[in-house]
Design a binder for these strands. Structure first.
Lengths: 222, 222
DNA sequence: CCGAAACTGACATCAACCTGACAGGTATAA
DNA sequence: TTATACCTGTCAGGTTGATGTCAGTTTCGG
């Protein structure tokens, strides 16, 4: 699960980041709506945790501009005020959940998990692509009727390619999806995972082409 | 069976939670309709026990808003007043059952079981899976004709796997079923219960496979 | 034909997982 | 109450397997 946290209180942000990292989730932190906006423009996340009170543009403004642009990203709102108006307007604006400060980190994490799970369940989580099918709920991959066993890294990479068919992805794009923010990686690690993935899915109609000097491109070969 | 209890009387709530936990069910307790609403929006339960008289939004309001949203969750209404109007309106609003206070905890539990059973579309509480059968009322497990004695934790885990065959379950998914909200757990505790469960059901055709780095997957081996 | 980029087999590392032993807690019976 | 049995989480040690690194090779563009 990859999460973007938008929160200007540094102490709170740190504990959230720490807790999520501990629990094996990738979480990036920004302190303003403007920064969140620009990161969301070119990076992909599974969900957004958004504080309402932010210096400059408020959380509500960010949320509504996302929804105007038809961005379906699951959003969980954090609000310091317990008043109902905030909640109502948050849900009206298209938030998927809200939490009133102060809250229990475990509860935050549980709600995030639920949100992401629900989002995945919504899109009937079966991706067909030629003779290859991927079920994101069960994390199983089939070529024809045969089940292929993939390792976690390979699953992540395959999922990325399947959701970005016919689009060029640089090694950095891929690494951003695979590694937590700040986690070190070498280009070679990505290549290695790719080698392994290619070996596993050979025999399928999904081809991952190398675009030398640029990146990779997945497409269906008939 | 995972239950959400909405009840503002703390003493009563405690005894219900205690009784259900004792009997191997996961039960979470909230004290208001508002809290119930937000939890239901993002977590999955098998049923809801709902007090009518609540501070703030009443049980009826919660129930009717659930049904307006086409939420089919089985609901059992608790009412302090024995008057017929309440019962009638409860059923009109889409409650599946009601109970008049004071009541016997055993009766409450029995009705809950019946409700969940009905929802699952089964006329009995017997789940068959290869040569293994599980009776959710009596909590007895048989391999072939031989009765297997399981501990409460093992029963909970087995029930979860049986109702989620061929689906990947993460350790967190499992823990959420086994432990009430806020209760601490370590991954190792889950592993330990699994080890014990596996030992008990060896000889059956039910296999619980480890998917390293991801979770577990139960399926029937022929 | 050269150099950079990509590929890939081998290996080391480390985290995930398994499991036997133990201990604290709770129910049950005397 | 005391004694007993049992349940269940924690700890520690061992095993397995996923994954990044390295190094040698291949491929490709210019």
């Amino acid at each position: 699960m990859r999460v973007l946290l938008t929160e200007d209180n540094e102490g709170l942000a740190n504990s959230i980041v720490h807790y999520f990292t501990e629990n094996g989730h990738a979480i990036d932190w920004v302190s303003s709506a403007e920064k969140a906006d620009s990161i969301l423009a070119h990076d992909e996340f599974d969900m957004l945790i958004l504080d309402v009170n932010l210096p400059g543009k408020s959380g509500f403004e960010l949320l509504s501009s996302l929804r105007i642009r038809k961005n379906p990203l699951p959003v969980l709102i954090l609000t310091a005020r317990a008043d109902i108006d905030d909640r109502v307007s948050a849900l009206d604006l298209g938030a998927d959940d809200y939490l009133v400060k102060p809250f229990d980190l475990r509860e935050l994490a549980a709600r995030c998990r639920a949100l992401v799970r629900r989002e995945r369940g919504k899109s009937d989580n079966e991706i067909q692509c030629g003779n290859l099918s991927f079920n994101s709920a069960t994390k199983t991959v089939k070529i024809g009727d045969e089940i292929i066993e993939l390792r976690p890294r390979e699953v992540q990479m395959l999922e990325l390619f399947l959701t970005h068919l016919d689009r060029m992805l640089t090694k950095d794009d891929i690494a951003n999806r695979l590694y937590n923010f700040g986690e070190a990686y070498t280009p070679n690690a990505v290549e290695q995972i790719l080698t392994r993935l290619r070996k596993q899915i050979q025999g399928s109609t999904l081809i991952i082409k190398t675009v030398r000097g640029m990146g990779y491109l997945a497409h269906v070969h008939d």
